[in-house]
């Protein structure tokens, strides 16, 4: 299941549409980093609203995505973590440290807009 990545101005939006295998997640990591470089993006939104759950592998991969993109000088925000998914993550002990999260796409965009304003 490939994750579509949309370019919107200075930002990229990746919308996860179903449960992802480990290979899908790693593919998303590579594709996002390549796109950030190619499009010189300032920010990335990863929309996980449709993700069935976030286990330790998914969390670690998301964290890696955020850190790699940050090293490129761009910001990432994860949007749409469902309440029950968040609850399961907390029980597992996953914290998503240093990862920006927002309620939905709109708030994610607002966050990135604010971030890129303070940078430039």
């Amino acid at each position: 299941m490939e994750v579509p990545i949309l370019k919107q101005g200075d930002f990229l939006i990746a919308t996860i549409q179903a449960a992802l295998t480990d290979a899908d997640l790693l593919h998303l990591r590579t594709a996002l980093l390549q796109q950030v470089v190619r499009s010189r993006s300032r920010g990335v939104i990863v929309d996980v609203t449709a993700l069935d759950l976030m286990d330790s592998f998914a969390s670690r991969t998301v964290q890696e995505i955020v850190h790699m993109i940050r090293l490129r000088g761009a910001e990432t925000v994860i949007v749409g973590i469902q309440p029950e998914v968040a609850f399961a993550m907390v029980q597992l002990g996953l914290t998503l440290e240093n990862v920006a999260t927002a309620l939905d796409l709109e708030e994610g965009l607002a966050y990135l807009n604010q971030k890129s304003k303070t940078i430039s």
Partner: peptide, 17 residues
């Protein structure tokens, strides 16, 4: 509940991995 089902599915994901 769907919430509890997510907890169970998450546990299965970890064990299977």
């Amino acid at each position: 509940s769907p919430g509890a089902a997510t907890l169970i599915a998450t546990a299965i994901s970890e064990l299977a991995r």
